[in-house]
Design a protein around this nucleic acid. Structure first.
Lengths: 339, 339
DNA sequence: AATTGGCACTCAGGCTGAGGGAGTGCCAGC
DNA sequence: GCTGGCACTCCCTCAGCCTGAGTGCCAATT
């Protein structure tokens, strides 16, 4: 009884089940794979695989279905990297290159990933906390209010309107002075360092502008601190409802979960922590820390310096294909954002 | 045979069917409404209503279900305005007032509307084409590239990066001069007027800055022209999949349709054209111009000067409730954006 | 002329039971 | 350790039956 062949059987089961979404029996396996042994032997192997908790039978006299552990083993040891075709690669490149700004890049990436994988795609905006300041702009917007615009090196733009208690509409000098000081202190430093670096600026400004500077510094600190303000974008939720999908009843709870962007952000964060450059993280079914997603799998990775992207789908997922698509898309997006 | 009572029967049918989602028969009607007549009479009325195409029976010996035309009549003539409770109003107000910027306002509005109505909420960003310029900012972002930031009076911010073919990183004078000229020409004018107003600026700048100014003007014109760049935000798609919902098979095609933001934008546009201040537009089932949404109804209105918002749901929808919620939310959002 | 009670009729949905078929586990033989 | 054979299990499908909600129509009543 060879260990090797048993794993071969597991691989065949996973592949067939992913294709057909029906429990696969010993006979059906022989039809579609040359294992060189008889059905009875396959049955013996299956019995062992079941004992090991890698596959399970929905009921007696039905075929077998991979368990979460089975998928895990498949992903870790049995799946070959499935490189994208040249056509796919050029399609990705062409599609992403039409983007005009960061919003557009993120939007296109999301749609692209969902159509490539036929799953729900999740793309996180490049995180502010790990990025640096490219520029800070101050714009009086009528009355005593000032719009503070922060531009990060990733191209992301955040704005806040603050009330500074003083009408600055006609005092371009003071605003310009403050703008220059803030930029001198903050530009090309990490966002997380902004509060401390602005402390010096506060001391330097003249008394009457102190309160203005403080309000602005506060707004910038808010932006930097507010992790919750990180955003994710979804596409392809319709894929969950497709015929042949495996969400009979729980579909609406999965959709609900996907609208909890805060949760998705945490998810992307924890998963991309596991994924180093060019390697994707996979979380299968019950491995998922967030209960409503226990019936789903997530394939994700990091891109560039601080973003995350991936797909969410049923555990019965074409992992090699999804992993290849996620990796390739992450690669191209990083390239575009760097350029 | 009183016309009046017949309409009363229609109203009762719509109300019961919306509640229970089951065809309503003559007897069940008598239990829940005091019509003061017998079941046989109600049956006669129903026969007439069916002849008029206002209700239909899924099959012989089943109760009746409103047709699209039935809902239409109900909405137009039979539904009383259902004012929100005081508690709901204060909840709306409180929820929206926590918003920190335009993105946040739109996001909160969408989630609020979907949780109020238990439908899919659609909120369109205030359109640029009808708004005016509040400020234009130019920021050199390394090399020969310049970031053009446009701030509209609605609080919306759009940016573009353009290559101006000249390194401006250390020529703050030229940038400042151009910024001042552009703002002088464009601020508080409608976005649509930007291209013509900038023509004068182009003539005035010195020869060597001409190409820079042209690139910037082009970018601004792009933003102003690009209607497709208008954005919508969705929430509550999970509500479509809720148990008791009426999308047995077509669910995924509806979800697909909702991801076509371009279509949604056109939809919101055409509907809010019909809706004047404080009046909501309703499009029921087949009335909808976009085929994949023929099984849904849309309740929408305008808010403020140039935005649209509404909900999309099954034709079996609580119209009075949805209309009240849409109207109230639009009211509050307009107030907040004005303030 | 409108309303009503009565009555025969229809039909979707649920329940049942039989038959087929895919699949299994086990065992004896190679 | 592999294989063919065999008995067994149990899901699924289908047909038939029954029930109950609901209808349409009619004759009688107001």
């Amino acid at each position: 009884m060879s260990e090797e062949r048993r794993l071969e059987v597991l691989r065949a089961i996973v592949q067939d089940y992913v294709r057909t979404s029906e429990p696969v029996g010993s006979k059906a396996l022989l039809d579609r794979h040359q294992l060189g042994v008889s059905a009875a032997t396959v049955r013996n192997d299956m019995a062992v695989l079941e004992e090991e908790g890698l596959i399970t039978a929905p009921h007696t006299s039905a075929g077998r279905v991979p368990t979460d552990a089975g998928y895990r083993l498949f992903v870790d040891r049995l799946s070959a990297v499935k490189p994208l075709t040249r056509a796919e690669r050029t399609a990705i490149e062409r599609f992403l290159h039409g983007a005009v700004d960061l919003d557009d890049v993120v939007g296109r990436t999301t749609r692209l990933l969902s159509s490539l994988t036929q799953q729900v795609a999740v793309v996180q905006y490049p995180s502010l906390t790990r990025s640096t300041v490219r520029h800070v702009e101050l714009v009086p917007v009528g009355g005593t209010r000032l719009m503070v615009v922060l531009i990060a090196n990733t191209g992301r733009v955040e704005q806040r309107v603050v009330d500074v208690g003083r009408d600055l509409s006609h005092d371009e000098g003071a605003v310009g002075d403050l703008r220059a000081r803030i930029n001198a202190a903050a530009v090309s430093h990490p966002l997380t360092a902004v509060p401390t670096r602005l402390a010096d600026v506060l001391d330097a400004v003249v008394e009457e502008d102190r309160v203005v500077a403080e309000a602005v510094a506060q707004a910038l600190a808010d932006v930097a601190a507010e992790d919750t303000e990180e955003r994710v974008v979804l596409a392809g939720t319709a894929n969950l409802a497709r015929v042949g999908s495996d969400f009979p009843t729980s579909l609406s709870s999965v959709l609900d979960a996907l609208e909890e962007h805060v949760v998705l952000l945490r998810l992307m964060g924890s998963m991309s922590a596991l994924a180093d450059e060019d390697r994707v993280a996979v979380s299968i079914g019950h491995e998922n820390p967030y209960a409503p997603l226990r019936t789903t799998s997530v394939v994700a990775t990091r891109y560039g310096v601080s973003g995350g992207l991936g797909v969410v789908g049923p555990t019965r997922m074409d992992y090699p294909q999804a992993m290849a698509a996620v990796r390739a898309v992450a690669h191209y997006v990083a390239e575009i954002l760097d350029g």
